[in-house]
Simulated scan of single mutants.
Amino acid sequence: MTEKPAIALIAHDLMKDAMADFARTHEAVLSGFSIVATGTTGQRVIEACPGLDVTALKSGPLGGDQQIGALIATGGVTLLVFFVDPLTAMPHDVDVKALTRLAIVYDIPLALNRATAEPLLRALG
């Protein structure tokens, strides 16, 4: 039996509602994947879609971004969906840049907004 591929979900604070809505809208497709998410984002997705296989890691600034980065580097993530809030300064901006860099280096699809995430998810599902 093969393990389900993993999708990483991350959302800045003001984008967490949008991520929960994205998960609800695409719950059927997401059910074919394991989901890894940073702490609060993961909890919000679990609340929105209790039937999904979601692992909530640490909060992004407390190491969750690095945990997801490690999964990308070891081939454990198929798609990174990171709903970024471009209008709010983020003290852990270097972590965001590191994740986008890893997605590029390891050649995995990266979506920074819903308009990109939806067609990528459809292509994988």
Rank of each mutant, 00 (worst) to 15 (best):
K58Q: 08
G75M: 05
V29M: 15
R122D: 13
E3V: 04
R24C: 12
L124D: 05
I68P: 00
L110T: 03
T100M: 14
P5D: 14
L124C: 05
Q67K: 08
V81G: 03
P50G: 09
P109W: 01
I10Y: 02
D85Q: 04
K16E: 15
E3P: 00
M15A: 07
A28G: 11
K4A: 11
I35E: 02
S31H: 13
A111C: 08
T78L: 10
L102P: 00
L124T: 01
G63T: 04
R122K: 14
T100F: 05
A18Y: 01
A56C: 11
I104S: 12
D107Q: 09
A117W: 00
G51M: 08
G64V: 02
R44M: 14
I72T: 01
V36A: 07
F83L: 14
P91H: 13
T55W: 07
I46C: 06
V81Y: 01
L112I: 13
T100E: 09
V29R: 11
T2C: 13
L80H: 07
V29A: 15
V105K: 06
V29H: 12
F83Q: 04
F82G: 02
T100W: 04
E27C: 08
P50F: 09
Q43V: 12
F82P: 00
M1Q: 14
A37C: 07
A117E: 01
T55K: 11
L71R: 09
H12M: 05
G69I: 02
A73M: 12
P86S: 12
K58P: 01
L87T: 15
V36F: 02
L14Q: 13
G32L: 07
V77T: 06
E27I: 03
A98W: 01
P5C: 05
R114A: 14
K16N: 12
R114W: 09
D93L: 14
D21I: 05
V45P: 03
D85L: 02
A28P: 05
L124H: 06
H92C: 11
G69Y: 02
H12N: 05
G42L: 06
E47G: 10
K58I: 02
P61K: 05
T116V: 13
G51Y: 10
T88M: 12
A6K: 01
Q67T: 07
C49M: 08
A98G: 10
C49E: 11
R114N: 12
V45M: 08
Y106F: 12
A20N: 04
M1A: 14
V36T: 06
P86E: 15
L71M: 14
G39R: 08
D21G: 10
L121N: 01
V77M: 04
I72L: 08
Q66N: 09
P50M: 07
T40V: 09
L102E: 01
D95V: 05
I68D: 00
L9M: 11
T78V: 07
L79K: 01
Y106K: 04
D93T: 10
T88S: 14
P119I: 04
T100V: 12
P119T: 07
K16R: 10
P5F: 08
L121A: 02
R122W: 10
S34D: 15
